[in-house]
Design a protein around this nucleic acid. Structure first.
Lengths: 235, 235
DNA sequence: TGTACATCAGTGAACGCGCGTTCACTGATGTAC
DNA sequence: TGTACATCAGTGAACGCGCGTTCACTGATGTAC
């Protein structure tokens, strides 16, 4: 047991807290921004590892980074700003993830299909993150206006899907049942419904994710009505 | 300004708290169960009026009923039990509400359609309640087993829909794309997706509820693919 | 090359708050004698 | 009919906790002279 370093922090022996770090090595002058990034990483880690958005507290983040709570205020004016920024990063990453998941697909329908599956899988694999991004009422507009801005990180995925849907309609693969943006919101609602309901109602005997996405696709594509009822007037 | 009652609580003049009640008249002996019901009512009122599940605290409930916090422990062993019980009542009421909403409909498709619209409308009208019932990870099984129990309050609606779907399939109105229970979960996911996404992403320019439900129905019924693509191999 | 100094990255202690929960109690009310 | 008493429906004060946030500080580090 060589001890090359001074025993600043003797031994966190009774430490049961799962997420903790030794005191962080202080950043050198001019490198203060490094902590900012580490803080945002920590927020994401807490979400991913605990799967619970409630666990994100200034103190928990500080502990994970290896820094005391007040240090965080050097980089973020308050907790909401910190969380907001972490969310923006997460939305961007999520958008990239979706695009990568369909990188090998060429026709629009396959793109949508691949992204739908990837969407639900992401939610299942990262429940905490998904909850914060898509299941919380949005305190997401601090200095933004409340009007719609397609450049906003949380809208990127939706806009991308709308483009794909538009392309599919132009190719004649999809019928123009509604405008691309509206159809995109329906697709989004579809995958979000599957994902969020699975996360919320954990003791329902759900089919597998693959089955559900496949079925969603079959239904959205061809419907579940008998074709004889195509012109039925079910009110 | 006649004052027939003793001035026990002089004047809550500076009281800005919206939800408050004068001290409750004490129940007579043997009528203790009355408070229990009033507590459950209060939990629901907080959810409905504040639209925010976080606002449900032992103290807030006590204040709303007009009773001190410890009194609640005479009727519920802890907060979780209290909330759980309030949820069970709410699930039951919700199931009744759905059934009433389609009471005038006869054919299965119209029943489903009416209930779908009623479902989303309820969520929009009672966001707080909807959030607790369907957007929280379920701590709903206290003394229950974790296995599926169709008699559970939160499952009643699902089971009802599954029956309706089964009837529709037997009538030949719906194709047996999957078994009734699976189809029911897809319908549930569909309306839940619309409702919960609207509640979570408040600054998206959503179509109206009616439009969305109508479109969901059109899509689920007839699909959005061109019939020429019915046998396409989109992977 | 040496030193005084401004700057920067953080610390430690404390604040007030609301929370769930416990505990010993109070005082009205019905009941037994 | 009167009274002692057990029971019941609540109260009031306090606990320990974790939270977001503030404030005055410390001490390492780069820079100017």
């Amino acid at each position: 047991m060589s001890q090359t370093e001074p025993a600043d922090h003797p031994a966190p022996s009774g430490n049961v807290v799962p997420l903790a770090a030794p005191r962080r090595v202080r950043a050198r002058r001019g490198e203060g921004e490094r902590l900012r990034e580490e803080i945002l990483d920590a927020v994401e880690r807490i979400l991913v590892e605990t799967g619970d958005a409630e666990q994100v507290s200034i103190r928990a983040v500080g502990q994970l980074v290896g820094v005391t709570a007040p240090s965080i205020y050097r980089h973020f004016s308050d907790k909401d700003v910190m969380v907001h920024e972490a969310c923006q990063r997460a939305y961007d990453r999520f958008d990239n993830y979706l695009n990568e998941s369909s990188a090998n697909e060429t026709d629009p329908l396959s793109v949508i299909h691949a992204q739908a599956l990837a969407y639900v899988r992401f939610a299942m694999d990262n429940p905490g993150q998904y909850r914060v991004l898509f299941m919380k009422p949005a305190p997401h507009h601090h200095d933004h206006s409340t009007s719609f801005d397609p450049e906003r990180s949380e809208m990127k995925a939706l806009v991308h899907i709308a483009h794909t849907v538009g392309a599919a309609i132009e190719l004649g693969v999809l019928r123009p049942v509604a405008d691309p943006m509206t159809l995109a919101t329906m697709l989004w609602s579809g995958v979000h419904g599957i994902a969020s309901l699975r996360l919320a109602m954990t003791d329902v005997p759900w089919p597998t994710v693959e089955e559900q996405v496949e079925l969603l696709f079959t239904l959205l594509a061809f419907g579940m009505c008998n074709t004889s009822g195509q012109n039925s007037s079910h009110q």
